[in-house]
């Protein structure tokens, strides 16, 4: 039992609990907060996986910007109380079926994991993933996708503006 493994198990349990909290909470605000908690634990996991840059933007962009947007919309629409909306509809079979199929998917993934993945060895060398290395990759081999992403974001901005504009 290495210290790393202990930390991982603790974080894993927290993140799974947070995800389940997202799944079950009746209040949208709580759900969003659970999701932020999940993102935060995953950010720490990124650090442990030698990805400090991603860990930082996970917190700043995902947990910060995107989730703030979510919270903002929830409050704008007054949709935080879900009790009324979450009553059972005619789709009774939906929930058990979803859980069952999800379990099946998990079993399949675990099967693949056991039969194919666990034998492959880890790379001996550790990677350097500071902002400089990321930057070299972004503006080197990934220049075109990077530029395309900027266009995508621009389109998203315009789309959001057009969609929400008052007629």
């Amino acid at each position: 039992m290495t210290p790393d493994l202990i930390v991982f198990i603790a974080l894993a349990i927290i993140s799974i609990l947070a995800a389940i909290g997202l799944l079950t909470s009746r209040n949208a605000i709580y759900a969003a907060l659970f999701l932020i908690l999940n993102f935060a634990t995953v950010a720490v996991l990124y650090l442990m996986l030698n990805a400090p840059f991603l860990a930082v933007i996970q917190v700043s962009v995902y947990a910060g910007a995107i989730m703030v947007l979510f919270l903002f919309v929830i409050m704008l629409l007054g949709a935080e109380r879900l009790a009324g909306a979450e009553t059972q509809s005619e789709m009774r079979w939906q929930r058990p079926l979803a859980v069952g199929l999800g379990a099946l998917l998990l079993i399949q993934a675990g099967y693949v994991f056991i039969t194919h993945f666990s034998q492959s060895p880890a790379s001996p060398k550790a990677i350097q993933a500071g902002p400089m290395e990321i930057g070299m990759m972004l503006f080197g081999p990934y220049l075109l996708p990077f530029e395309v992403t900027s266009v995508l974001l621009l389109v998203a901005i315009i789309g959001a503006v057009v969609l929400t504009r008052d007629k």
Partner: peptide, 8 residues
């Protein structure tokens, strides 16, 4: 749900 079924 149909999509998930298809994936599985």
């Amino acid at each position: 749900m149909m999509m998930l079924l298809g994936v599985v």
